[in-house]
Design a binder for these strands. Sequence first.
DNA 1: TTGACATATTCCTATATGGGAATATATTTA
DNA 2: TAAATATATTCCCATATAGGAATATGTCAA
Lengths: 126, 126
Amino acid sequence: MARAATTADVFNAIAEPRRRELIGVLADGKEYAVGEVVVRLRMSQPAVSKHLGVLRKVGVVSVIKRGQHRMYRLNAAELKPVHDWVKMFERYWTHQLRQIKERAERKALERIISSDSGTKSGNREE
Amino acid sequence: MARAATTADVFNAIAEPRRRELIGVLADGKEYAVGEVVVRLRMSQPAVSKHLGVLRKVGVVSVIKRGQHRMYRLNAAELKPVHDWVKMFERYWTHQLRQIKERAERKALERIISSDSGTKSGNREE
DNA sequence: TTGACATATTCCTATATGGGAATATATTTA
DNA sequence: TAAATATATTCCCATATAGGAATATGTCAA
């Protein structure tokens, strides 16, 4: 099997740096025409259109026609799955002092345990 | 140019669902041998090794040899860039009531504006 | 209608993938 | 030393890219 499509889910869609930049432009919640994004990011127009297309397929942006322009708007709620997933690890870098303390305690505990029964690399249950 | 390598950065590395599952196993902070992961996720051993290899290249996991085992441990701090980036959009889905109210206000404002000067799709500065 | 403008789509190509199968490389044990 | 065990690596291939260039499509204005 090949790599999953960029349009497979939000995680794949935002893996591309240019697309994150794109989202960054739309981050103020206002709507932008393709041409505006082209100017701001100094990308080619087809590139912008394609990237916006990917983001639209996963729902991260939405479009409405207005005259000859297509106005793109961020649909930030679609980024929530990413936030939810990575939030699980928040505690690893917040509260640095508490974290350092806990790590020290854990190491001390490991020392005590390993001076106990040996190295058999036991079956960590199951 | 082709798509960026999965080892290019954390965003690309975690785009693959199996790798997020892998990280999920290591999420308790303990160290795991490859074989343990193979059993827990019911993936083939080469697949696990390869995925762990990707995660190691971007620094999300670290390895130490212990006997004939390679013990993998999560290096959660490397996920912080993802957290930092997506945190910018937190406000869009928290405080739902406030959010709904703001959206209503915005729409009302837009109605007022559009009944004003027309559709010229003005140059949003710059 | 014709032309100017805004955007999307198609065609191209080098590149990397993920998975399965087979195999190589340790390391422990008998 | 040889077998067993744990893990990594290689080879294979179908698939999808991202970007540039060219072009198609759609919309407004004269």
